[in-house]
Amino acid sequence: MDINDLHPPDDYSHRFFIWHEWIQANGPLTAENVFDYFATSMFYDKQSNNQVLRMQTIHSGLPIENEAEELKRFTGVEFAVVHSQPPTMFIVQKRERLSPDEVRPMAAYFIMNNRIYQSPDVYTILSNRLLTSLHSLQTSLDILRSHRPDYTPRTGFVWPITDPSLPLEITKKRTTEDDAMNVDEASSIAAPKRKVPNSPEAPRRQQNNMLLLNAMRATAAHSKMSLASSAFAASAENLPAETPVTHIRSSATPGPSSQAATPKNVPNAPTTQEPAKVPPGGGKKKRKRI
């Protein structure tokens, strides 16, 4: 395992540089002395072409008149001030020179209010923003989960929304009524429903009376049929009973002779049977003739 994996080199992306003594000794930053101030920071590379050019002219004591033109003679890493807005804003670019007319940017640094910062790359900016967004979402969901209301079968998870313009007492009263309603709905699952009289404030529900009307019609029709059948049975019972006729034939007279007579106290004579009472609407049964 490479030791750099455990201890990666510091890129100074989370640090800044400021030197108050240098500012007090040399005055505020300008386009001429800003690079000298940048060269004292930890962002400056001592092996860059700028340092090589300075070492070549350090013994002669002559200042470098045009450093940008002199750096075109070299190839490699160099620094250049690409934007100057004294005394508050400066941008220094680190780049690799491939030819006198071709360079490739490597990093950027900005100086703001005498503080030198390293500008982050696009990957660092995007990853930082995504991590910040995810952290905020996770924190919000944790807070919502801890304050989630109780579940009710009728409404589910409903958040109590209050109007800030209403007085505090009315808001508390509504919250108490909502809690009581949720408790009643939860208890109604285990216990049977009870009939509650209609209050004048609550709206009345429309009832379906068609089933009751059809049942009343069927009951009235059935009662009429039962009354007619019972009257018919009563009239049949009030009719007089027929008396049996006995034909007596004499043995002396050869001719047939019939005489209607009413038997009196004949012990062996059959007696008439009373008709059996039938339930109303059952109809009239036929009598047997003997």
Rank of each mutant, 00 (worst) to 15 (best):
I3K: 11
I3H: 07
P8D: 02
D11W: 07
R15Q: 08
F16T: 00
I18V: 09
W19V: 05
W19A: 14
E21F: 06
W22C: 01
I23Y: 07
Q24S: 12
A25M: 08
N26M: 03
P28N: 14
E32C: 00
D36S: 08
Y37L: 02
M42P: 15
F43Q: 02
Y44E: 04
L53T: 03
L53M: 06
T57F: 14
I58T: 13
I58M: 15
S60F: 13
G61R: 14
G61D: 12
E65F: 05
A68S: 04
E69I: 05
L71Q: 13
K72F: 03
F74D: 01
F79A: 00
F79R: 02
V81E: 13
S84M: 12
P87K: 05
P87C: 02
P87F: 06
T88R: 12
I91V: 15
Q93K: 11
K94D: 01
R97I: 05
D101K: 14
D101Y: 12
E102K: 10
R104T: 10
P105L: 06
M106N: 06
F110C: 10
R115T: 09
R115Q: 09
Y117Q: 02
S119V: 15
D121F: 00
Y123F: 15
T124L: 10
L126Y: 10
T132K: 09
L134M: 15
H135L: 14
S136M: 13
T139C: 04
S140L: 14
R148Y: 04
D150C: 03
T152F: 03
P153R: 08
R154P: 02
T155D: 13
G156S: 01
F157G: 01
F157C: 02
V158K: 03
I161G: 02
P167S: 13
I170G: 00
T171H: 05
K172M: 12
E185K: 05
S187P: 00
P192D: 11
R194L: 15
P200E: 11
R205C: 05
L211H: 06
M216S: 10
A218F: 02
A221H: 10
A221N: 11
H222S: 15
H222Y: 11
K224T: 09
M225T: 09
M225I: 09
F232V: 14
S235E: 15
S235M: 07
N238S: 12
A241I: 06
E242M: 11
T243L: 05
V245K: 07
I248H: 13
S251D: 14
G255R: 09
Q259S: 13
A261E: 10
P263T: 03
N265L: 12
V266D: 15
A269D: 07
Q273A: 01
A276N: 05
G281W: 06
G282F: 01
G283I: 01
K286M: 04
R287A: 08
R287G: 07
